[in-house]
């Protein structure tokens, strides 16, 4: 039996990789994928804890997170398409209206 701590560390590493990806990539779609990566890391932690505590609730939560992720992917990608239509780019550095 593998110690559950390993799963948690794996989850933490995945999360960090996702976070770093969000920070260093400039392609909006890739950033979006990195966010999915972070969500998956959290899912892993949830399932791990569910196993640890002999409870089903963690798995149910993962189910809901997947629902939200699906909704988010649909809307987020639609936004990216809309942005691409307006600015002809998905480079987030060119989408910098929020400055002084």
């Amino acid at each position: 039996m593998i110690p559950l701590t390993w799963y948690l560390i794996l989850s933490g590493m995945l999360f960090t990789i996702g976070a770093v990806g969000v920070l260093i990539r400039r392609n909006a779609i890739v950033i979006f994928m990195c966010i999915e990566l972070m969500l998956n890391a959290v899912n892993l932690a949830f399932v791990t804890f569910a196993r640890q505590l002999n409870s089903m609730d963690g798995q149910i939560f993962v189910f809901f997170i997947m629902t939200v992720a699906a909704a988010e992917a649909a809307v987020g990608l639609a936004i990216i398409i809309a942005i691409y239509r307006n600015k002809a780019t998905v480079n987030v550095d060119n989408i910098n209206l929020m400055k002084w």
């Binding site: 969000v22 920070l23 260093i24 400039r26 987030v92 550095d93 989408i95 910098n96 209206l97 929020m98 400055k99 002084w100």
Partner: peptide, 12 residues
Amino acid sequence: KLFQTGYVRNYA
């Protein structure tokens, strides 16, 4: 205001 670069990645 110099901190407000407009780059989302900076904010992140």
